[in-house]
């Protein structure tokens, strides 16, 4: 189930979730960065938890709920994060942004009622590289989005 829709796919057995999302299902919002778990451009949520989709085998995910950046149309929380990113000027080349937005979405989900401090937030973002912003505006924007939640 990707973003609430189930997709029957025939793919190569060891294809990663990232490959299938992009190449078979056309979810190009999920980006290919390093392909080995170090940059976070491919971040999606699996049952609400953030994951690097390049480190998961697609065929092992068939009964999971997968959300990609494309789920923003139906997810006000993601929209709120995006709005803050836009306001704060946190988007430059933007290649890292869908992954980072999903990581922050996962953090909000995981934290429930708990307060999200800057330290916790940065700890979560350590799985996502942004080469443009120095993270400063991303942290400012994310904290605002988290407080709002």
């Amino acid at each position: 189930m990707v973003n609430g829709v189930s997709h029957p796919v025939v793919c190569k057995p060891f294809d990663t979730l990232l490959t299938v999302l992009r190449e078979d299902l056309g979810y190009f919002g999920t980006k290919f960065g390093c392909g080995i778990g170090y940059c976070g451009a491919c971040t999606v949520l699996i049952d609400g938890k953030s994951a690097h989709s390049c480190c998961l085998i697609a065929t092992t995910m068939s009964d999971r709920k997968i959300s990609t950046i494309e789920s923003c149309d139906d997810d006000p929380v993601i929209q709120k994060i995006q709005d803050q990113f836009l306001k704060e000027g946190a988007i430059q080349c933007g290649y890292c942004i869908p992954g980072i937005v999903m990581t922050v979405r996962g953090l909000i989900e995981e934290s429930g009622q708990r307060v999200i401090t800057e330290e916790i937030l940065r700890g979560h973002l350590d799985g996502n590289i942004c080469r443009c912003s120095g993270y400063a505006s991303i942290v400012r924007a994310s904290l605002k989005a988290c407080v709002d939640e």
Binding site: G37, I46, K49, S50, A51, H52, C55, L56, H124, G127
Partner: peptide, 9 residues
């Protein structure tokens, strides 16, 4: 251990 992305799985 790493970051939540890795720890979750």
């Amino acid at each position: 251990v790493a970051t939540p992305h890795v720890r979750n799985f």
